[in-house]
């Protein structure tokens, strides 16, 4: 994922707190993806308006971690969601 690209959750894909398993999940058509803390933190910032670069900078400040590290950790995760059509991306 490039810094200027804008990720968005498409219709039919949403964050959901699974009260039974006490975990955040991403619900998508006929699939449920269990999220770890990092995955949940990233997707909570995805609003369809801010770019990937803006999101990683926000997370960097929030968690006091290097922005490059956050970009590296989250880029593969978001690309995988994109390939499964769980994430829309506009340039």
């Amino acid at each position: 994922m490039l810094a200027q690209e804008v990720p968005a959750l498409p219709r039919g894909v949403r964050l959901h707190f699974d009260k039974v398993r006490e975990k955040w999940v991403l619900l998508a058509p006929e699939r449920a993806v269990t999220l770890d803390q990092i995955g949940h933190a990233i997707l909570s910032e995805v609003d369809g308006a801010r770019s990937f670069g803006q999101i990683t900078r926000a997370l960097s400040e929030k968690y006091d971690a290097p922005v490059d590290q956050i970009a590296e950790d989250s880029s593969g995760f978001l690309d995988a969601l994109r390939n499964r059509r769980f994430l829309d991306v506009t340039a």
Binding site: H16, V20, V25, L27, E30
Partner: peptide, 9 residues
């Protein structure tokens, strides 16, 4: 839902 089902078909 109370049992833990997430997806309903």
């Amino acid at each position: 839902a109370a049992l833990g089902v997430l997806q309903l078909h």
